[in-house]
């Protein structure tokens, strides 16, 4: 079965992100004051797996072993059948 996974990776709450802070300041200069701004990474993955659970655990393993750094990141996975 073919699955479509979307992985979102972001810094754990409370961690400082100088890149996001800089972007937030630039937005302010453009006249868009904001209360908060976070930057996240998104991975869109197509994969073949025997079941939805298997696909879920494969993608979780991908996050734990490479896509996210467990010291600093949280990750969120959304999976649906495709094709």
């Amino acid at each position: 079965m073919q699955y479509h996974a979307e992985v979102t990776i972001g810094l754990k709450s409370g961690m400082l992100d100088p890149e996001a802070t800089t972007i937030q300041k630039a937005l302010e200069h453009l006249g868009f004051p904001t209360d908060s701004l976070e930057m996240q990474k998104r991975f869109v993955i197509e994969l073949d797996a025997p079941s939805r659970d298997a696909a879920q655990s494969q993608v979780e393993e991908m996050c734990r072993r490479l896509l996210a750094n467990p010291v600093i990141h949280n990750f969120d996975i959304e999976i649906e059948e495709s094709g």
């Binding site: 992100d17 100088p18 890149e19 750094n69 600093i72």
Partner: peptide
Amino acid sequence: LVESGLLPGALMTNSYP
């Protein structure tokens, strides 16, 4: 070395980026 888990912690973007 930190990414491989041989040392603890992480190295992030400099506070002044």
